[in-house]
Computed example of a mutant assay.
Amino acid sequence: MIALPEAFVRVTVDREGPAGLAWLSALPATLREMAERWECTPDGEPMYGGVGIVVPVLRERTGPAVLKVSFPHPENRFEPDALLAWGGRGAVLLHERDDDRFAMLLERAHSTTLAQAAQGDEAAAIAGSLSSRLAVPAPAGLPRLQDRAAGWEEQLRQDARDFPDALPSRTVQAATATVRELAHHQPDTLIHGDLNARNILTGTREPWLAVDPKGWVGDRAYDCGTLTKSRSVVLAEQGDLSGGIRRTLDAYTSAAELDREHARRWAQLSAVQAAYSGRRRGFRRGRHGAERDRLVAIADELAHILTGP
């Protein structure tokens, strides 16, 4: 019997409500079924991320691995396709998949994240270098970011109407211009889609391995926004958000061989979207109350910094 972590249960129910509770009720049986089918045995305490549980296992054919089962959601559906396309190049290997159960058997990386192992410019440079390796021609059938562009623009207009005093008009106009000028026509490139420092783990086969990709197709500069958002909380707590974000942009774009201004615009759009969505739904690490308000304030300041003079 695999015991579900109490914190994972609370977070899932808080986020998903009755659907999350029903999924959690069936999850132990799902984990047992997948372990039996893929001939593996538990080898440690379960871990969890934002939407999935990860159980260390052993399997004779592949050695140490992890069994991952995620809450069913459209944005989780293409994770195995991305991992299959990379074939272990900069990301964990995919051994088995069951798309109906949102289950995978994956190469086991170490539990240490890039956020824990490296700081400042080094972390940004490692993420940028990895993003370049993951940017490969996209397989057919994956979701395209450019198909979201019209929805992004409409959402920005709605957000500005609903929260008229949240952000300066020039900040919102800059984000809208990025959607119009960059988002509607994007390359056929597979990108990670959520390349924050917690989704990069230390490995044995390679020094750094990406996990939890979205499997989107689009402009690889998009991932710069995820990295800057994830760094912004740490930098704000250190009292150096403005200077730290500029250094993060420099290090990331240099390592990724990206145009800095192009990446800055994507990051600014991402910050504006986060400032508004945080007001509507909160954040993973703060959905309510004072913590949500603190994170909204950081997102506002990040959007201001990235808008530029």
Rank of each mutant, 00 (worst) to 15 (best):
G90R: 00
Q119W: 14
L145R: 02
L145K: 02
N76M: 12
A115E: 12
P137E: 09
G63M: 09
T112I: 06
P74M: 11
E96W: 01
R144T: 03
A124H: 00
D99N: 15
R133F: 04
I126F: 04
P137L: 05
A123H: 01
A123G: 07
A118C: 07
W86P: 03
L145Q: 01
E79D: 10
H110G: 14
D99E: 15
R108L: 06
H73C: 07
G128E: 00
Q116H: 11
L145G: 04
N76K: 09
A103Q: 00
H95R: 15
P143E: 06
R144K: 09
Q146C: 14
E107G: 08
R133W: 06
D98H: 04
G128P: 02
S129F: 06
I126W: 01
D98T: 08
T112S: 08
L142C: 07
A117H: 10
A85M: 03
L94T: 08
P143T: 07
D121Q: 13
P143G: 07
A103H: 01
V66N: 00
G88M: 08
P80G: 06
L114S: 07
D99T: 15
S111N: 06
V92K: 03
L93E: 14
P64L: 05
A124M: 02
H95I: 09
T113V: 08
A82K: 01
H110W: 14
P143S: 07
L67F: 10
D147P: 06
